[in-house]
Design a protein around this nucleic acid. Structure first.
Lengths: 120, 120
DNA sequence: CTGAATCCCCCAGGATACTG
DNA sequence: CAGTATCCTGGGGGATTCAG
């Protein structure tokens, strides 16, 4: 180890790019719509309108904005076809699909926490 | 299974309280200060001022607000001593300590995602 | 030392209308 | 169909001051 005279798990937490990697994940997982969108696309490639129909209360502005953000972050891919009317398909990348296990860990923690609270 | 004629992992995702548990976790993990606070307390019981000193740029208002929120959510416990001046200690609950593995999974995903992006 | 009270700013997110 | 352009609001978060 380098220095650190105090105990705890600080070394592991502060090591390298812990915070960077964590905020990367948070950027994908937080906000109101990113998770519903990713969840919807877990069922496979889908068009703009389909996604919109699968997510209650979202509007096209929000969906467009979030999809653009997810694309910029390498979570979804966008494919446009020169048809008329236009058709655009969105699909999760490998990274996109791989958030599912992360979600499951988070869900497990949430459930365990509720158990802790109830049986306090 | 109940119904659902379509493929994918939707059944698992929509099952029971998936979303509830997920948002429970998100409430603990998102926001600007909750994670730094939890991370700081991973080193053990600590006083208000100590926590404040461990977290750059936080102010007492934010720290107080977040700690109150974390206490209300069963993530930290608060113990006040009738000394003068007053002394208050905060400590993670079992749930609080148990978010560490969750963070590590999130960090792993973040690192893997960076690898995916780089080696695209 | 440990907060509570006030005031303020910014922006995520919503509503609506419009276009290629 | 797949977005863009505007306008608007609430609340997360900051700075400062005061109090027990």
């Amino acid at each position: 180890m380098t220095k650190s005279s105090h105990s705890g798990s600080e070394d592991k937490r502060c090591e390298g790019n812990f915070m960077l990697a964590l905020t990367d994940t948070l950027n994908v997982v937080s906000g109101k719509w990113k998770l519903p969108i990713i969840g919807t696309l877990m069922d496979g490639k889908m068009r703009f309108k389909q996604i919109e129909n699968h997510i209650p209360n979202i509007n096209s502005r929000m969906l467009s904005k979030e999809l653009k953000d997810l694309e910029a972050n390498g979570i979804v891919t966008r494919t446009a076809y020169n048809t008329v009317p236009v058709c655009v398909e969105y699909e999760l990348t490998a990274s996109g699909y791989s958030v599912l296990p992360v979600l499951e860990v988070m869900v497990d923690w949430g459930r365990g926490h509720r158990q802790n609270i109830i049986g306090q």
